[in-house]
Design a protein around this nucleic acid. Structure first.
Ligand SMILES: [Mn+2]
Ligand SMILES: [Mn+2]
Ligand SMILES: [Mn+2]
Ligand SMILES: [Mn+2]
Lengths: 157, 157
DNA sequence: ACATGAAGTTAGCTTAGGCTAACTTAAATG
DNA sequence: CATTTAAGTTAGCCTAAGCTAACTTCATGT
């Protein structure tokens, strides 16, 4: 067996030891939360994109979704199957894809976060294109608290 | 076949049509970049964590890595296999895990970004715990340009 | 009306990252 | 030194998300 592997190697005091032991579950919770966010990121991107396409073209076709995402048609098709399964969209074969109530709600939330993240990045001096690109990843990891802070920051600035 | 699916549905002018057609590859590139970042996010977390553990305990054991990440031992083991394969770590069986030069370089980069993201979030009014949690996801999607902007922002603030 | 080509679907492969169960190895402790 | 227990490994399962190839269905233009 191995030497209890807390923080202390030899000369560290109990206080630091306790601090490290406390840190473990905290950090685990943070990583775990990031993993959860990662697992819904794609759903969010699809929901947002379907809303955009519907707004722009009056409908969201699988081909257009795939082209905008930069993936192949079968990939989009399979991901859309997941969105259906999770009750975010409906689709009649060979017709467009439609957001359900839940899907629209998600799209709205995501769209708002997307805009907010881009605005904050730009306010911080990030050029538009980089802001849009980075926001595409960042947007999925913004908690409510952070969202609020972003809003306050943009107001008072 | 279907009606060319650009932007224009009927009454939109050529200008808007062109704008949308241009938007497609741009947006595809953005999504694609986010996918790339997503695929290295885990490598980055492992590298950063191994560096932290080594600093704190003098070594990074697989068990400690797993516990801190909140995953099972076999999961950490398998992910570490990927890090080995990609030349980021070495490991002698039943001994600790060690960062290679490349691994240390990655850990340094990631650590710097992590701190910077947390600092920016806090400067924006996000409470510490939320800042740490959100940063754990956000950090993997920060481009060089954004990094620079963050640094400038923190300086002049 | 029908030929053709785009859109959509299906099947099947790959990699990644989770998990449990079962086993092996190493190390502390009686 | 033998036992016990923690650490590590291996095998095997699952889901998600990417791909290509091959097939089917639509719808348009001649
Ligand atoms: Mn996104
Ligand atoms: Mn977005
Ligand atoms: Mn992270
Ligand atoms: Mn980190």
């Amino acid at each position: 067996m191995r030497k209890a592997a807390s923080c202390a190697t030899a000369d560290m005091d109990k206080a630091e030891d306790r601090r490290c032991v406390e840190a473990e579950p905290t950090q685990a919770r943070r990583f775990s939360q990031a993993r959860t966010a990662r697992s819904t990121a794609i759903l969010e991107d699809y929901a947002e994109l379907i809303a955009d396409l519907t707004r722009e073209h009056g409908e969201a076709r699988t081909t257009d979704i795939a082209r905008r995402l930069g993936v192949t048609l079968p990939t989009a098709n399979k991901s859309l199957a997941r969105l259906k399964r999770e009750g975010l969209v409906t689709a009649r074969p060979y017709r467009g894809v439609f957001l359900t109530e839940a899907g629209m709600a998600m799209a709205e939330r995501v769209r708002a976060r997307h805009r907010l993240v881009v605005d904050v990045l730009e306010a911080l001096g990030v050029p538009t294109d980089a802001a849009e690109t980075d926001a595409e990843g960042i947007e999925h990891y913004i908690s409510e608290v952070t969202l609020k802070a972003f809003k306050r920051f943009l107001c008072r600035e």
